[in-house]
Design a protein around this nucleic acid. Structure first.
Lengths: 235, 235
DNA sequence: TGATGTGAAAGCGTTCACAGCG
DNA sequence: CGCTGTGAACGCTTTCACATCA
């Protein structure tokens, strides 16, 4: 039997984007989100260099993506370019920010002030993307009260009162793996909406049903080792 | 760009691979590699708890994967389970390690001893996966000669002589974004086979054609922000 | 009996190729 | 003319469903 293309216009949801602040409940490929952040990083560099227009192949070439993929990604968030010209870098930055939700500020608590926590506290590059470190927490009473940058380390027991004063949407979890799931649950209970988890363990559970993004250095090294053994290109 | 169909294969796989245990060469889905590392982490925890057998649904449930996916992944690296029973945790650890290449040791140079570099130097969890920090490098002459743990910080100019003494396969790049591409190129020239890049910039170039895995905290936070706004579950 | 292992189907994301438009 | 925007093809990944076997 021949396949008859009973072609029907299968309309996918279009992002419905008029200006930079409209509501876009589009289905954005999850892999595209990471790329959005990469585009944004590159566009900001371009802006600093005074370049205010770029086309899909140039942008793709700089990052190792195809022009086609760049256009798809940008199209998915409703970015519009000028045919024959390209995209406006500043406009594109705006559109991407509003698509991934970083056109507003996010308050962050840093939980766990060991080596990694302290390094993260000193990390520039959060603020420039609209992330503000507003609290530093540790489980160890010995560390409570000490200063890290402008922040005074608080106990986890003080967390609720901290949240009462300053709303905190996100938490960076940098505590030992043994206690990470418990702490994560506690944070979720206190109203934290998402966790960036540096502990090398799974902190998801029915009790902690908020989004979690994991960053595990050992896992990344393992991916690298595999890529090396297999002579893979990456990204 | 799409005019000339000079079809070139972009960033894709190199299928042919032989595990050191069996003779079965398998094509491992790239996404599966990250999961392998996650399986491994969980299996090691299970082993420590004295559990020596696990089936695909139990393992999947702990990590948020379907049983079906677990079996496919494990099948791809030639792991064998016992029908009606499950997989041997210790055997599975072995098989995964040999599949991703961490059944042998990897020597690592840590390049950039700022906040993050120093935190990484103190990070436990590399060694347990067969990664050995054997050199600490910084660009700042003021830091050269200082000790970080058991390592003495060396200048980047001494890198070649360090490699001559101790072969170094991987580098962790934790230098400022401005200098990262140059340093990456230099490392590749010195024979480093792969780079774990913490600098928030693209270090890939025709001159640096070794595998690179990027870890950008700001990007991960942006992914998290997106997940929160879209009420997504993660992983 | 209870799990594995795996064809086949379904689902997604990427790339192709070109119409459309400034 | 050059580049965007996008159906359609393609190919990879996941899920389904069940034969298979200790």
């Amino acid at each position: 039997m021949p396949v008859v293309p009973a072609k029907e216009k299968m309309t996918k949801f279009k992002p419905e984007r008029t200006t930079s602040n409209s509501f876009a409940s589009a289905i954005i490929p999850s892999g595209a989100i990471s790329r959005m952040a990469i585009y944004l990083r590159e566009l900001q560099q371009l802006q600093r260099s005074g370049i205010d227009t770029i086309n899909s192949s140039q942008l793709g070439e700089r990052l190792g993506f195809t022009d086609s993929q760049v256009r798809r990604d940008l199209g998915a968030i409703g970015a519009v370019g000028r045919r024959g010209v390209g995209y406006s870098t500043s406009q594109l930055c705006q559109t991407i920010r509003s698509a991934i939700g970083t056109d507003r500020d996010w308050n962050i608590a840093l939980v766990g002030m060991g080596n990694l926590g302290q390094a993260l506290a000193g990390y520039r590059g959060f603020e420039t993307q609209g992330f503000r470190l507003v609290a530093a927490i540790d489980l160890d009473q010995a560390k409570v009260g000490k200063k890290v940058g402008k922040l005074t380390i608080k106990s986890i027991d003080q967390f609720d009162s901290v949240v009462a004063r300053t709303p905190i949407q996100l938490a960076i979890l940098a505590v030992p793996a043994e206690v990470a799931p418990d702490v994560a649950e506690r944070l979720a209970k206190s109203g934290v909406l998402g966790i960036l988890n540096f502990a090398p363990t799974n902190v998801r559970s029915p009790k902690t049903c908020i989004p979690v993004i994991d960053v595990d250095m050992a896992i990344e090294l393992q991916r690298l080792a595999f890529a090396v053994v297999n002579q893979e290109a990456s990204r």
